[in-house]
Design a protein around this nucleic acid. Structure first.
Lengths: 208, 208, 208, 208
DNA sequence: CATGAATGAGGTTTCATTCAT
DNA sequence: TATGAATGAAACCTCATTCAT
């Protein structure tokens, strides 16, 4: 989760933070639009409103920027999830998971390009960075699992393997981004959410 | 499905087919291992046991090779699906979809690298080629949908939107490949199949 | 003038002649259209209705073909000139040079592409071949000079330097091909011929 | 006449101008010596005392360099013509055209390599660039025509088609460069100039 | 004789990174 | 700190020539 291992020539941590934020912003825009390999440093610098030299003053390599970008975006999406979790905390199990799915899937819709990018370009990270990013990227599964387990504890749900179900809920959300080219003219987001929610609930609800 | 639009200097279709198969084999190996952008033509030629010149005798560009590779692999995976459909044709609905899921998910496991690659690198195709490939890539959804609809017609299933369910079954299979890094030490393929099969059935079965 | 120094694997001189004629025909078409450097041997072979291998059976290199082509075309244009000289032989000096200019300039118009090519691509020949070709290419100047000198001998013309005038007449003809892009919408061939003829005569005629 | 459409990564117009001048210098030397197609970018870069990368920092393609080179050289030769026109402005018609021819033909002698190159390699430009260059290349005809027309207006010359005569004067100059291989051991530049001047005058002078 | 597949050096162009200013 | 010009290795692709069949 630390970005401290990334090389910079600056000794002012505040400035480093500011500039890197600037870099992440430009990179997010360009990488998502053109892909990592097809974006070059000159364009990237322009998108960041910096010179190429400045880029390398605050960052060690192109790949570092990819890492920073993943990190920052995952942190942002994680915030959305955390907010969702909080909003859902006091609801009854069915309502809680229903609401969580809605919030999460809407978040996916909002960040669809990044999520697609995430599945496509993580491979470009070196193993170490890759692992860090992947660890960040599964926070949502844990969050979802907690909500499910609360429902189980409350006796509302009966679930064989909550982790696997949570994983399903999450990745089925991702698929709204990954398979957008297929889904877009067949179903609306609203229906996609309702249909999946129904399906998940039907497989989970405890018939008394 | 035609590869006729790809430039070759040979006028012997048989030889073209042979050499392109050779190319596809090498490309599948290298592209999957190193990624499309990170594989260069010299390595690729070596992996195909050809000279660079020979490569370009049978193919117009690097991207053509990507297209050929997608095409060939999708054709192969499609064969697996067709075989599955046939094997399942005379079973009762529940058994049919159960068996289909098993066959398909095992196919995903076998071709996991290619499926991952598929999600990562289709973007590198030109729009026209991309569309052709994507059309090939959704054959599995249609196949699955047919099976579900047979079940509905037989009165065994009650499904609100068979297309969406079919899509879910398929992409949940893909996730076994895409999220392998996460799932691998948490669940076996066998359990992954059973769990999903149960879940899909529970949301589908007609309670009389 | 000999083409005997060009390598061939054939020992049948007749066949060599036939095939080389075939090659020259294709080469003339393609070289003139696309330029020497921009024509490759594969296209060239196709244009000659031969295989690449056959090409190299009767010719040692691409440059040899350029040489053969120059040679053949210059021989053909030389024929036109010789015919002109014969047709003009019995005319009176003024009529003779007038007619010669007409014939020659019309020949230029007919062979304009080759003449342009001649000025553009002779540089691609090796020095030895280049010299041979250039020697062929000045036959027209000699022919013209003879006609002029006959006029001088007859007392009809007064010319300080017949060679230079002959050279002018010839190259002014070439310019109809070289500067066609400029002349074409400003003057017709007929006017171009008349105007030049008048001018040459006016500078040459002996005022008694 | 604008070179603004040529891609550069620099935004410092002064530096662009300096470097492009450097490039033009190297290119003029090498292209003229070896021909456009036979000069490669590595050699060219060396001749320009730059790296290949630097070349492409200031120029979009090899062909752009050809265009720049044509442009620059034509501009220089045009300067010579303009100077000639000025020098001749106050002379009487016969002296004016006499002097102009002398200046122009001496200019041709000085720039002979470039003029030869011009006739040989303009074909390598894309149509748009080609047209621009050709437009530049006919400035000399216009200049010559003006001088002739002044003579006509003054009643000193009688010329049927001044444009065609001007064109002849100019291209006959070019021939000193194009046919140098033939002329060089037959006539001196001085004689070439005198002979042509005499001839042009004899066909033009108004006999009162 | 004839074919055309195969070769690999060499072509033009791109681009991550460095460094003088 | 910040700039952006400069580098040169390496990318994709072409093509004259050879040679097994």
């Amino acid at each position: 989760m630390t970005t401290d291992t990334i090389r910079t020539f600056s000794e002012d941590p505040k400035l480093v933070a500011v500039r890197r934020a600037q870099i992440v912003e430009g990179a997010t825009r360009l990488f998502v639009k053109k892909g990592y390999d097809r974006t070059n440093m000159r364009e990237l610098a322009k998108a960041c409103k910096m010179s190429v030299g400045a880029l390398y003053y605050y960052v060690g390599s192109k790949e570092d920027i990819l890492y920073l970008m993943f990190n920052s975006n995952l942190q942002e999406t994680t915030k959305v999830i955390k907010a969702g979790v909080r909003k859902v905390a006091n609801l009854k199990p069915v309502e809680a998971i229903t609401k969580f799915i809605e919030i999460y899937y809407k978040g996916v819709d909002k960040y669809q390009e990044f999520i697609l990018f995430n599945y496509q370009e993580t491979k470009n990270l070196m193993p170490e960075a890759r692992e860090k990013i992947l660890n960040l990227a599964v926070y949502d599964v844990s969050a979802c699992k907690s909500i499910l387990e609360k429902g189980v504890a409350a006796g509302a749900f009966k679930i064989k393997d909550p982790l696997l179900l949570a994983h399903d809920i999450i990745v089925q959300g991702h698929m709204w981004a990954l398979r957008r080219w297929y889904l877009i003219d067949k179903v609306t987001l609203k229906d996609y959410i309702r249909d999946h929610t129904d399906r998940f609930l039907s497989s989970v609800k405890h018939r008394k």
